[in-house]
Write a protein that binds this DNA or RNA. Structure first.
Length: 421
RNA sequence: GGAGAGGUGGCAGAGCGGUUUAUUGCACCGGUCUUGAAAACCGGAGUGUCCUUACGGGCACCGGGGGUUCGAAUCCCUCCCUCUCCGCCA
């Protein structure tokens, strides 16, 4: 969330940021509630001061054997007024907090203005869309031919959008996870973690999924838990409510499945693996000092890109415009893979700098050079998302005879298998 | 799931209704001493929030929430978590 002080002191900047984001968030309420809250707070605190001072005196008078009945009576009334005002402050605080949690982050100065995905900029492209001497077949046909997954039976056991990988398909999935984790830990200096796949509401609020995205998540009301939509949630929350002791930056990487209800996307890309309710992902998360966070963002994108280079896949990097960025991000790049049969680009990574937006929500601090506590900057990026990565590998690797050539980097992870035929 | 014990500042560990602005030790920072360091001694130090141009001051914080009281770390209720034992189990 934004610092209420920034909203107080730089209201025009915040309004401009909301406008850039095409956000209709209610800033007026925030400002009004803040004013009311401070007025009530001043009132109740002066009453409490009176109580503290008097109570101390009561102790002394009592010890001296003096009559304190009259004072007690007065102070009982003061106590009632305190209770009244305390209640009022609590209510205002709660309302303010709820309103504040719905104000999105401010875009960084380097983010260009735009309304939606159509305004995103292609920053660079690596490789070229592959040309085929035959009509490339879509990944679901290739998968069916080689029995890499079984969507029909998955529907029977769970429902649409929950893939069942079989045989070499399952092996490919596992190989990719291991390849990605090895790559980031060995070559990019990340430390591997393996977190819980369900988290509580406080964690979801800390990273910004709640309250806004509640309908997009799988919820277990009996235990008050949520299935994670990304490893970003548990991994970022590792340091929630802490002053980090170890030196920054901290680089973490994690494999987790990701669960998404895709509530607003019913009917889109329903075929195959392109939009599913459960997919695997290897995520990268960074905790850094504020001064370095934009350098770190560039490095993060490169880390994700290198994976795709090693796999020999064609991709492009987009810089998102102000209106297309996620709620918590100050700046964001997407990476998209070319899928020949899909005849389009598939998003497999999103790399964001949240600055102190998540850290403030989740209270993740460190000690700066002056020894003062300050909020860290958090970043994360997919490194990368599977399912769509599998789509690209299958569609790009297919040969005229229907076999599929696998990227060389995967051979050791596939038990030496170089080609699916 | 059953029974018991316990959650206090970076750590250890007192306090169980009113000079507690939370005792003390370790760790930390500054100073004295020393060629330098250690030891010793002296001093300092938490987090958040509100008021103030500033100096400074107020309020809150002893797992979370609520209650009793003029006054709660301390008493009561409730929830969460940790540990020990028993049961069940991959």
């Amino acid at each position: 969330m934004l610092d209420i002080k920034i909203i107080r002191e730089r209201e025009p900047d915040v309004r401009r940021a909301l406008q850039l984001r095409r956000s209709s968030a209610d800033l007026d309420s925030v400002i009004a509630l803040d004013k009311e809250r401070r007025a009530a707070l001043a009132e109740v605190e002066s009453l409490k001061n009176q109580r503290n001072v008097t109570s101390k005196k009561v102790g002394e008078l009592k010890k001296a054997g003096q009559d304190i009945q009259e004072i007690q009576k007065t102070m009982r009334e003061v106590g009632d007024r305190i209770a009244e005002y305390d209640q009022k402050v609590r209510e205002l605080e709660e309302k303010l907090n709820q309103a504040l949690l719905r104000i999105p982050n401010m875009p960084h100065a380097s983010v260009h203005e735009g309304s939606d995905a159509a305004d995103n900029l292609v920053v660079r492209t690596w490789g070229e869309p592959k040309s085929f001497s035959f009509e490339p077949r879509p990944h679901w046909e290739l998968g069916e031919k080689h029995r890499l997954f079984d969507f029909e039976r998955a529907v029977k056991m769970t429902g649409a959008g929950f893939p069942l990988y079989t045989g070499r398909g399952a092996l490919l999935e596992r190989a990719l996870v291991q390849f990605l984790l090895d790559f980031h830990t060995r070559e990019h200096g990340y430390t591997e973690v393996s977190p819980p796949f369900v988290v509580n509401a406080a964690s979801m609020t800390g990273t910004g999924q709640l309250p806004k995205m509640a309908e997009d998540m799988y919820h277990i009301p009996l235990d008050g838990l949520y299935l994670i939509p990304t490893a970003e949630v548990p991994v970022t929350n590792i340091y929630r409510d802490e002053i980090i002791r170890e030196p920054l930056p901290i680089y973490l990487t994690a494999y987790t499945p990701c669960f998404r209800r895709e509530a607003g996307a019913a009917g889109r890309d329903t075929r195959g693996l392109i939009r599913v309710h459960q997919f695997d992902k290897v995520e990268m998360v960074k905790f850094v000092e504020p001064e370095t966070s934009y350098e770190e963002l560039e490095k993060l994108v490169k880390d994700a890109e290198e994976v795709l280079q090693r796999l020999g896949l064609t991709y492009r990097v987009l810089q998102l415009c102000s209106g297309d960025m996620s709620f918590s991000a100050a700046k964001c790049y997407d990476i998209e893979l070319w899928a020949p049969a899909h005849k389009g680009w598939l998003e497999v990574s999103s790399c964001s700098n949240f600055e102190d937006f998540q850290a403030r929500r989740a209270k993740i601090q460190y000690r700066n050079k002056d020894g003062k506590t300050a909020f860290v900057h958090t970043l994360n990026g997919s490194g990368v998302a599977l399912a769509r990565l599998v789509v690209a590998i299958l569609e790009n690797g297919q040969q005229a005879d229907g076999s599929i050539e696998l990227p060389e980097a995967l051979w050791p992870y596939m038990g030496g298998l170089k080609r699916i035929e």
